[in-house]
Amino acid sequence: MKVTIKIFRYNPEQDKKFHYETYVVENAHETDRVLDLLEHVKGYNDGTLSFRRSCAHGVCGSDAMRINGHNMLACKTLVRDIGDQITVEPIMGLKVVKDLIVDMEPFFDNYKKVLPWFISDAPTPADGRERLQSPEQRARFDESTKCILCAACTTSCPSFWASDDYLGPAAFVAAHRFVFDSRDQAASERLEIVAETNGLARCHTAFNCTMACPREIQITQAIGELKMATVTGRVE
């Protein structure tokens, strides 16, 4: 099949303004991924096309981009699911570095603010092995362990488009991961961080994050649980 792919292009060394370029990929297959099409364009049409990719299997989260107006991973999006007219743009709310590559620093700065690592003063178990928890305790935060930091959620959020000071859904998911972990002892510190002025109160429950997440994490629900934790104090 023939696929027409329109790609956002911007080279800061040459262009004053972004523009779109359209390429036709002959002999594409309906099981091809958008990433395959981009590789084809880069390999056969224009070697200067720039985009991030790494594992190409939906695990590393490098290739989040806006495909036909929706945030998706290029490596998980098949041609048969989106048709033969495809528009590819960078994710929104972050500065474009070149073509489909954006500056992820503001995203990671917000992520780091919620202390996304295990914190506990409890001594290591006597046998020196793992800090155990029950399957039920583990299941409490299972959803939020799936995040791959692709930024599809945060860059689909209208509150983040308005201000990149807003912590954003990915940071909330990271906070949720530890706040509800029975072994972690810094729930209080994290809740104080996510409840600040540019935190939970800026979430207007638009559900864009949940729709965009390639790992199908129920992000809006996780944010709701954090909101209720600040009100009720329940962190189990």
Binding site: A122, P125, Q185, L191, A195, A201, T230, G233, R234, V235
Partner: peptide, 23 residues
Amino acid sequence: MEKAKPKVLPLNKRGMNFEMFMW
């Protein structure tokens, strides 16, 4: 099994502020 953390955080330890109060 790890010693359980408190199930409910006290009011001054849960991030409750003006923003969340208004929420």
